[in-house]
Design a protein around this nucleic acid. Structure first.
Lengths: 253, 253
DNA sequence: ATGGTCGTTGCATACATCGCAACGTGCCTG
DNA sequence: CAGGCACGTTGCGATGTATGCAACGACCAT
């Protein structure tokens, strides 16, 4: 809608691929160098890009701060977190919390028992939307026409032999998740990883987030993981209750 | 430099404070509603802002993805990470990695033994620049005039009685760090927390990052923590060697 | 019903952005 | 060492674009 801003913002994903110099930026934007320079300078002033010692530009530090603050503003995360921790203590497996936004599903929290160190590598990253259990729950709650439209637009990469192959299969998965009130991903993303997920609902009953427990085959079989389903659902319901204000934030009675 | 982009980008920190509606954004920008609307729409198209169900705007998901990718592009982090983990295994305390950028110092990695879950709450956040041990090392490496100029510009909040009180004291701290080749923060940020830090240098000898080990008084005294200094310095030197290409990425012989 | 608030649209004007061309600087080459 | 090349930078005039206005429509509360 606004040409100048549009161009300026297009620089960001471009720099996300790696540092670039003025000429490269100008070329890829299809504008004159002087134009690119002015845009980059403005981005620089706001800290969104950084000029490293070799004069090339890369994404700047302010992005981190903004992303942080954006997270802090997601109150669902704050409410859910202690529940996720408790669930993790009970079952020992990796616990995820995800939300849906603009045709993307992304993890906004994660508690991992075994490899705590690698946490940050996933939070904030878009999820494999066609196979992840949490994605199925979040998208299943969309109005039917939107669901169909989205299903058509998506790609269906075959991560494994059990990945959702196409739109029709995906819509069936969503329908199933919708009726069950929970969902699974059995080796659809990575061969040896299974997930069980349950939805978190707001006061109006709409799904606002989804949480899942994931574990590799070598630790527990898919069947064993499914025995955790009641626990996962109870946890999700507890979060729902607190989020929608039904459960007046009590100190765990 | 570019009015339109400048205005658009000013919206981001504004929304970082919390969701806002069109009118609020327009007011705080000092522009007409229709102008703010177009800017917000452009930001929206790029996923930087999100319109929640109550029609208010907040920061969007793309910010997470961008911040992620920005991190991935910091190759110092990738190189350093295994070293941080090893150090953490050896001493058990929290290990930080920080860089300096645009008069800010920020953590870009952290390994924490006891509370892995809260990791994300700090990575990406600016550091208390006047007291943190890593900040002293990073800023000590600046050319003298820049150092003075920066020291004057800073605020010196008294987090504790041992916080650096003013520019003069800060410059003395930097000088000390410069000569020693390491630095400490003994209760300058939080009364009961001590840190020991060492610099990571590039091929040209300039400080490109700094790492630290932090521990609360109740676990180890400041003196005990200081006994870790040789280990911390060795680790930092190992990272320096690998980063500057001196140590050809060997599989730990 | 009705006043008020808020988001949205079309439009004419003013102004900010754009591309151009020229300059400066550093680097490599002949 | 001179010359050429590549790159970032600056000033400027023409054009296109962003701007604010005013009017509309939806929604809520009184």
């Amino acid at each position: 809608m606004s040409q100048t801003v549009d161009r300026a913002l297009s620089i960001l994903p471009l720099l996300a691929e790696g540092p670039a110099d003025l000429g490269q930026v100008a070329d890829r934007l299809g504008v004159h160098k002087s134009t690119a320079l002015r845009l980059l300078r403005t981005l620089h002033q706001h800290g969104l890009v950084y000029r490293q010692s070799d004069q090339r530009y890369r994404l700047g530090a302010r992005l981190f701060a903004l992303a942080q603050e954006a997270m802090d503003n997601l109150d669902i995360r704050e409410i859910a977190h202690p529940h996720l921790v408790r669930l993790n203590e009970q079952c020992g497996h990796t616990v995820h919390l995800a939300v849906h936004e603009e045709n993307e599903v992304l993890y906004i929290d994660k508690v991992e028992s075994r490899y705590p160190v690698r946490m940050y590598s996933r939070i904030g990253r878009p999820v494999a939307i066609t196979v992840a259990a949490v994605a199925k729950l979040l998208l299943a709650d969309l109005p039917e026409p939107e669901r169909r439209a989205l299903a058509q637009k998506l790609d269906y990469p075959l991560y494994t032999a059990r990945s959702t192959p196409n739109a029709a299969a995906f819509l069936r998965e969503l329908e199933k998740a919708r009726h069950q009130g929970w969902a699974t991903d059995l080796g659809g993303h990575e061969e040896s990883i299974n997930c069980v997920a349950a939805p978190v609902r707001g006061a109006d009953g709409r799904v606002v987030a989804a949480m899942s427990v994931s574990a590799p085959n070598v630790v527990v079989t898919a069947d064993e993981l499914l025995t955790l389903l009641p626990l996962v659902r109870r946890t999700a319901d507890a979060i729902s209750g607190e989020y929608s204000g039904r459960t007046p934030v009590e100190e765990s009675v």
